[in-house]
Every structure is written in structure tokens, then in C-alpha cells.
Amino acid sequence: MNVLTKNLRLFWQGTMLSYIALFAWLRPVTYAASKIVMPLAQMLFFVFLGTYATNSNNVDFYVIGNAVQITAVSGIFGVTMSVGGDRWAGTLPYLFGTPANRVMLFFGRAFMHVIDGTIGVVIAFIWGVTLLGLDLSHTNLPALGLTILVTTLSTCALGLLMGCLSLITSNVMFVNNTVYFLLLIFSGANVAIDKLPAWMQALSQILPLTRGIAASRALVAGQGLAEIGPMLLTELGIGFVYGTLGYFMFHWFEVVAKRRGSLETV
């Protein structure tokens, strides 16, 4: 068996089995609640709060912003649980005691969450259309699908970076919660970016989701793939940077954990 086949197999098995092994949401009721009820709750909360606070009929702004932002549930929490779950399962020493390709091991943890996050956003859009009057009749749907996928990829890349922290600390869920709520503001999901102070605008530009949400709004407003293409490429680029940074941190933390003897600390 050649090296490529071995690594692809490791990627696929790591993807599937680590998802099943570590993600308790696979219990059908909990999974359904997280995928169906939670996006609706988040959207209803921000739609009614936002339209009440701004006293304007801008429901679509909040529906689209929160529908896309919901990918952070899989991208941030899901991916971190997949990477960090090995600490709780006590499997970290056994993983790092193998000669497995670390790139496959690392990125394999995120792949199912990309699919999962994409499904979550689609469900949120369905809520938007059926309950909150979102009109997609002028939308290039394949382009919207691509935008959702790219945005989920870049968010999962940030999740991988966060997940790396779980190799050296057991307090990573605190960091994740903070990041998730910051994304609600900084990504432009609920506040227009140009209404934010300059320093917040600058920060929003280096986060995933910002361009994905803007591109989704543009597509729903009737623009085409050509107009949003540059935004998608930048979103992808941001994901690439976070993913690469995450991998190097994963590698570095493995070394640090072996120096400190902290692989099994829970």
C-alpha cells in the first residue's frame, strides 16, 4: 500500500471514527435539537431583538447573518471537541505514540464538521424561508451553496486552531465560548461592519465568516458569483492561514506537551 493511499485511509477513518467516537451529538435527539432547534432559536432571538432595536424592516439582514454564523457551532465547538476530545478520552498518548502522519491526523478531525456545519446553515436558511419570509427567488443558489461551504471551511480552520489549545490546556471551552460570541458581533452577523469602531472593523477583516456573510447577503440581493468571487477567495485564504497556523501549533504543542509531560493532564 503506497504512502498516499495509507494517508488517505488515515484521513477518512480519522474523519469518520473520531466524529462518531467523540461527538456525543450523534445521539439522534440531541443531534436533531442542535441542528434544528438551536439555529431557529438564535435566529428568532436576533431577528426580533435587531428589528425592535433598529426599528426598521431589515429581517433579512439578521436571518442571513445568523444562518451563516450558525456554522460556527460545528466549526468552533465541534472541531475543538474533536481535537480536544482525545484529551478527555485519554487517547492522546496513544495517538502521539503512533507514527501516523500528523497532517492527516489533524485535518481529518475537521472534515466531518465541514459537512455538518454546511448542513446546519442549510437548515437555518430553510427556517429563514419558511418562518421569517426570506426570499431566495433572485438568488444564485449554487453560488450560495459554494459560499456556505467556503465559509464553513474557513470557520473550521479557526476551530482547528482553537482545538490545538486543548493539547496544552483543559480550559479551552472557555476560549471557544468567547470566540463564538465575539463572532456574533465581529463577523457582521448582527451589526453592520461599517457601524463598528475602526479597531473592530480591522479585526473583523481577519476573521472567518465576515466575507462569507457579506457574500451571502449580496447573493440573496441578486448579485452573481462574479461579484462575490473576490470575497470568497479571501475567505478561503483566511481559512488557509488559520488551518496552516493551526497545524504548526498542533505540531509545536505536541513537542511542548512532550517536554512538559502534559499529554495526559485533564
Partner: peptide, 12 residues
């Protein structure tokens, strides 16, 4: 079996 399958893939 799945545990063993996964660790087998880790060892290539």
C-alpha cells in the same frame, strides 16, 4: 472492532 480499525490506520 472500530477502535482497532482506527488504530490500525494510525499505524498505516
Amino acid at each position: 472492532e472500530d477502535n482497532l480499525r482506527y488504530f490500525a490506520s494510525l499505524y498505516g
